[in-house]
Design a protein around this nucleic acid. Structure first.
Lengths: 218, 218
DNA sequence: CCGAATCCTTATTGATACTG
DNA sequence: CAGTATCAATAAGGATTCGG
């Protein structure tokens, strides 16, 4: 069966033939911070339906947007990662993210409405380096672990742990997300158990969230 | 009926809830060079189906991406134009265009595969100002007329005519497009009647097309 | 468990005909 | 010209199954 196409001799249309289908750009978003397994993707895309994810990944692989590889032993799990053409789509996801920040609703989301990757995305987009002091934070978000390092006004996000964290936080995605986007007070989440601080203290967490600012506030 | 949504508390997903549906970004593309009438849009989007275009426009209007206005008398036709939020999507269309240039096939397209707007898009994306000398060209593409002015290495495209054109060309979209993208020789098209020069001569047209270069050639 | 393939129901689309 | 209305063809969503 021939894939559906706009049938236009137009670069924009050719692009959308490849990445314009439902879910495709969200898959790119989910691969922006590193390789993911099939099931990670499924979890980050509630509602996609496993057959559709499999199809999309196959199409994206054929278009050289993603690549399927095996992690080195002993992990050895098969993961999907962005190929070169896929990495070139990062600016699009970035602009969509900026554009969508204006559309964020004012309500507190349900817990299953906030996948992990958007939190990382929001971090990169909302970070304002000007007044940021150096610090290293280890975030445990659901089952995933990331090290966020701020150095000289620059922020980096790496998967994995670190021995030298100033702050180690266990959090749900929505707690993290709403603290970043709406500067919601950590106290509420510490009380209901959505956030737990293992190393460091609340004041440090508040300092950290202070480094993030909605562009409309500028 | 509630519109289908990704249901994610994520700026990227919110954006795609609005502009991620089939055809939506192509409509934005078609409005990038100025207001268009309903039927112009239909013509630029072969295959869309008039009900779907009407739906999309309604959704985009509700999302304040496009605005519906009336042209001043005596034209008085209703047109659609980009609103502020819509204009902010221009960078996305641009990146998609860059990305899609790599995907352009090597064949000569059918005539009805090339709408007018992609030609204007290709012009803006492929123009290399470095060696460009000043000139003014009036293009009649199908029923539409545009003035392309090159001044001091800068190019502008305006709808309408001009009395001081160095070159006046009547052309089909595909002739123009393939000359820009693949540097196809005008001679072929002059012979088969797809291009007609009313003012100026072929050498000037060749000079003009020389100002455009595929990024991969750089 | 992971990475899908299958089956079935619902929602969206594409094409055409028709109307103020 | 600017859309509505109708309806068949497709694609998406959800549950279940199946092989490493």
């Amino acid at each position: 069966m021939p894939k559906r196409s706009y049938q236009q001799y137009c670069p924009t249309a050719y692009s959308l033939d490849v990445v314009g289908d439902r879910w495709t750009l969200l898959i790119v978003r989910d691969l922006l911070f590193g390789p993911r397994r099939y099931t990670d993707l499924l979890e980050g895309l509630p509602g996609i339906g496993t057959n559709l994810l499999a199809n999309r990944l196959k199409e994206m692989e054929a278009a050289e947007v993603v690549r399927k590889t095996k992690l080195p032993p002993p992990a050895s799990s098969t993961v999907y990662e962005l190929a070169e053409r896929g990495r070139q789509l990062a600016p699009i996801v970035m602009i969509l993210t900026d554009w969508g920040l204006e559309l964020m609703p004012g309500y507190v989301p349900e817990e299953d409405e906030v996948p992990v990757v958007p939190c990382l995305g929001a971090m990169t987009k909302l970070f304002v380096g000007d007044s940021a002091e150096d610090m290293t934070v280890e975030f445990h978000i659901n089952e995933e672990v990331y090290v966020v390092r701020i150095e000289g006004g620059q922020m980096s996000i790496q998967p994995g742990t670190t021995p030298d964290a100033d702050l180690v936080v266990y959090t749900t995605p929505r707690a993290l997300m709403t603290m970043l986007v709406e500067h919601r007070d950590p106290a509420t989440y510490l009380e209901n158990g959505e956030i737990e601080i293992r190393t460091g203290d609340v004041s440090l967490l508040k300092t950290f969230t202070g480094f993030f600012q909605h562009p409309s506030a500028a």
